[in-house]
Design a protein around this nucleic acid. Structure first.
Length: 890
DNA sequence: CCCTGGTCCCAACTT
DNA sequence: GGGACCAGGG
């Protein structure tokens, strides 16, 4: 029996149509991932395709990793070679790291190196981009209030996603504002080129340009990849579409899988035309529709379908499920955001308690439109002592200390990266202040050098005060030593006079001839195509135990550096290093990091700060070193490590083991949960205020709502806050129920909580109604409130005086769950939410997730702000905020 | 040059 | 609730 027998006829058709182009229109929950993985397995096992000749593109690294895992399970033992499963962006980076220099053009000046990006380009993230644009606008005197860097950047990104260059934007612009944007765009491109840097959009564009204009490269990939698969096809933009076509070559063995109802990235350039033009560009395309949903109950599917049916721009489809009936859609109307969050926590708490006996797949998610909503839910979960995971928000790599160290690494990889250089040149403070930076920047502008080049020039030309020169030299030496470590150079430091006389080309030659710049890479051969495409699993394990941090002596792992040292044209360089011998060759990223931390005194300075925040930063840095060691163990080079850091996405943090996950609707794409709470269904929040003027954007919001609703397997609860605070302390504002609520068929909805479902249009007025800024309203009982009546502060006061009960709707909710039958037979909730773990006393044994067991030494402060000092056998005394430390009784 | 504290102005989604 | 920016004292 073949694994294909597990598929339904349509799925099987999609899997077996391996010859020629296929478009699979896969409804929510219709087994899309299954079809893709089975298709890959089928290609390998039955069609006889070489695994490495299959390329699958996904949107997140997480999805890529999962897919790879599932394919492995199906055909694991068959071959050592693996299909390439990767995100578009990661794939492009690898293509570019290999061949980007084929795009360089000869310099007009004889003897000068060619112009264009080199292999050790860096990737600029959004904040780097901001800095570039800000700098340009300041230089051009365009930094007024009307045109913010943010604005400009989104226009630049828009232009790139639509494959328009600055000239085209300029020609299209009908007003001075857009002309200015075109001008800044032009300068922005120059700056990035000078910095040997690309932004996210460039990764796609440049890879596309490379495949388009360099025949040899295109042919290499056309030979290499016989079968192309694209997941989440509805969310591809034009450059991605072009890439797919280029990679498909003449063979046209492409398979695109998507669902137009789940297109939620048009603002990032996703183009619905890609689906339409698929049939135009590949006229022989076979179309397969997957319409059986295996995930949700009929009620959930019916509600979601009814909502999305209000969209005009869609093909329309008939999703069906064999899971008849099911629980009704719950709807809860909370008086305010805090209460909404408590309701969510309580609902999940009950669900978990109930499900423990039942057993497996006990998972719940709270989905919301904007990241800023997460805070309320986090607080509520903590009050209920529920362990939760937040996906997105402030990522590890955005933390200041991590960005600092990553910036150091980026400068070491590519000293021309002026943005990273600016970030670290005086971090920690080493006496290089504003005036010095301005001098260097002016020098860079005059000479056309990068900042790094200008620093060398400034020192050499003695344009700066003695003290400043000393500081700059210290910085330069640090970077050069790092570079030399990376190169594995063993040259003794030359004396100052000759070290000052630098010549990039000569040094590069010296590096090469030293014979140590080539580290042995454990590959199966020079031309083996497998070495540049490992299956892309980008997840870093930050969970490695802390004792590992100090466990790497001087031993070198499989760490290999890139096979050639590229010294860029305007980068003077020396290879001289003293004191940091790296026996056996080049240093790996982890060693380099430790060297940087040590030499900059970064951790030492944090230790001296002696605050909980500083300690948490130190921990973050340790985690970074852990990540670098994992990277080393995978045999990765510095640029691969940095690529990972740049390309990890929010959605990659999703942990399928977690019982409770909080995330945005966007991040939830592709996931499923037995219980989903979809929160904040208010006009202006969802649909978001910025979308409400354009019908097309509202349709996208509606698709987003559809995506959210169809994540639910068994139970879906919608909620809304009647009053919501914008920005921390502002007056709460009355909200209007989201239009999407009205679109859910009433017979499928069961109201939870005391307030009646208002009739359409009879809700709270659209006008901003000031609400009482009385914090007690959080737990204000809502039972007999007539919501359409105007808010009465006196009544609120009276209610607030009565004992706190959370929201009032306990009985109703219990009933709601009871109606689920055996699945959730909910007991009455405790009157008070649990108050959190507090009260660790001196002498008590405690357990910390990172530091292990220890003894409480002293306790300061009380309640929320309590700090306790704990003696850990291995880590010594640590002062911790009790609130955050996740301490448990040992 | 460096650090601090106050004030402004903000926030949609993300590779 | 908080990041970015600036003024002013050390």
């Amino acid at each position: 029996m073949s694994f294909l027998d597990e598929l339904n006829p349509q799925q099987r058709e999609a899997v077996e149509a391996t010859d020629g182009p296929v478009l699979i229109l896969a409804g929510a929950g219709s087994g899309k991932t299954r079809v893709i993985t089975f298709r890959i397995a089928h290609l390998i096992e039955h069609v006889g395709a070489m695994p490495e000749s299959i390329l699958a593109m996904t949107f997140t690294n997480k999805a890529a990793g999962e897919m790879a895992e599932r394919v492995e399970k199906l055909v694991g033992g068959l071959s050592i070679a693996k299909p390439v499963i990767s995100t578009f962006h990661s794939f492009c980076v690898r293509v570019l790291r290999r061949d980007v220099e084929a795009l360089r053009t000869p310099s007009a000046v004889p003897g000068q190196p060619p112009i264009g990006l080199t292999k050790n380009f860096v990737i600029y993230d959004e904040s780097d981009q901001q800095q570039v644009v800000k700098g340009i606008m300041r230089r051009l005197g365009l930094d007024d209030k009307q045109l913010t860097p943010r604005n400009v950047l989104s226009r630049i990104s828009w232009a790139k996603n639509h494959m328009l260059d600055p000239q085209e934007i300029y020609l299209e612009s009908a007003d001075p504002r857009n002309e200015r944007i075109a001008h800044i765009y032009e300068e922005y491109r120059k700056e990035l080129r000078k910095a040997n840097a690309m932004d996210f959009d460039d990764l796609l564009l440049e890879a596309m340009r490379l495949l388009k204009s360099v025949t040899a490269v295109r042919e290499y990939y056309n030979r290499r990849f016989q079968y192309i698969l694209v997941d989440e096809y509805q969310d591809t933009n034009r450059p991605q579409y072009e890439l797919m076509r280029l990679l498909a070559g003449d063979r046209h063995n492409v398979c695109a899988v998507g669902d137009e109802d789940q297109s939620i990235y048009s603002w990032r350039g996703a183009d619905i035309r890609n689906i339409l033009e698929f049939e135009r560009d590949f006229p022989e395309a076979k179309i397969v529709r997957l319409e059986q949903n295996y995930r949700s109950t009929q009620n959930i599917l019916g509600a979601a379908s009814a909502v999305v049916a209000n969209n005009i721009r869609r093909k329309g489809k008939n999703l069906w499920t064999s899971r008849q009936g099911g629980a009704k859609i719950g709807y809860y109307e909370a008086p305010d955001g805090e209460n909404e969050a408590l309701f969510a926590a309580d609902t999940i708490n009950r669900y978990l308690q109930q499900a423990v006996e039942g057993g497996e797949n006990v998972r719940a998610a709270v989905l919301y439109r904007t990241n800023s909503q997460s805070r309320l839910f986090e607080e509520a979960m903590r009050r209920y002592q529920l362990k939760y995971h937040v996906v997105g928000g402030f990522s590890f790599y955005e933390r200041a200390e991590i960005k600092d160290m990553i910036s150091y690494l980026k400068v070491i990889q590519n000293p021309d990266d002026s943005i990273s250089l600016l970030r670290v040149v005086n971090t920690p403070a080493r006496g290089i202040g504003k005036t010095t930076i301005e001098t260097i920047e002016r020098l860079a502008l005059e000479t056309g050098l990068s900042l790094w080049g200008a620093i060398g020039e400034g020192i050499q030309r003695q344009l700066l005060a003695g003290r400043t020169v000393v500081a700059l030299k210290a910085f330069r030496d640090l970077i050069q030593d790092g570079r030399a470590m990376l190169a594995g150079t063993l040259v003794e430091r030359l004396d100052e006079s000759s070290a000052g006389n630098e010549d990039g080309a000569a040094d590069a030659a010296a590096l090469r001839s030293s014979g140590r710049t080539r580290a042995s890479v454990p590959t199966q051969g020079e031309e083996s195509p497998d070495t540049d495409f490992d299956p892309g699993n980008f997840s870093f394990d930050f969970g490695a135990s802390a004792d590992e941090v100090d466990a790497t002596g001087g031993e070198l792992g499989a760490g290999a550096i890139r096979d050639e040292i590229v010294v860029s044209a305007n980068t003077p360089d020396t290879d001289a290093v003293e004191g940091f011998r790296t026996p056996g060759g080049a240093a790996n990223t982890a060693e380099l990091l430790k060297f940087l931390i040590d030499r900059t005194g970064y951790i030492k300075l944090l230790e001296e700060e002696d605050t909980p925040e500083a300690f948490s930063r130190i921990e973050n840095l340790r985690e970074l070193v852990n990540a670098a060691m994992d990277s080393r163990d995978r045999g990765e080079t510095l640029d691969q490590f940095l690529d990972h850091a740049a390309l990890v996405s929010d959605a990659d943090q999703y942990d399928e083991q977690a019982q409770i996950t909080l995330m945005t609707l966007h991040a939830a794409k592709g996931l499923e949960f037995p219980l989903v709470i979809l929160a904040g269904l208010e006009e202006g929040l969802f649909p978001h205020s910025r979308t409400m003027l354009e019908p097309d954007s509202v349709e996208e919001e509606r698709r987003l709502c559809y995506v959210g609703m169809t994540r639910a397997m068994d139970t879906l609860v919608l909620s809304r806050a009647v009053y919501r605070r914008r920005y921390g302390t502002d007056m709460p504002e009355a909200s209007v129920p989201s239009r999407f609520l009205e679109e859910v068929p009433p017979q499928l909805v069961e109201e939870l909580g005391g307030s009646r479902r208002r009739s359409a249009g009879a809700g709270v007025s659209r006008a901003r109604v000031p609400a009482p800024h009385d914090h007690e309203t959080t737990h204000y009982s809502y039972e007999d409130e007539d919501q359409s009546a105007s808010w009465d502060p006196a009544r609120v006061k009276a209610k607030a005086a009565s004992p706190v009960r959370g929201y009032n709707s306990i009985d109703n909710i219990a009933e709601f769950f009871a109606s689920r039958g055996k699945k959730f037979n909910v007991p009455r909730m405790p009157v008070e939410p649990p108050t959190g773990r507090r009260g660790f006393r001196p002498g008590q044994r405690v357990k910390h997730p990172k530091y292990g067991e220890g003894t409480v030494y002293q306790r300061e402060g009380d309640g929320e702000d309590a700090k306790i000092t704990v003696q850990f056998p291995r880590f010594g005394l640590k002062k911790l905020m009790e609130k955050y430390a996740q301490l448990e009784k040992a």
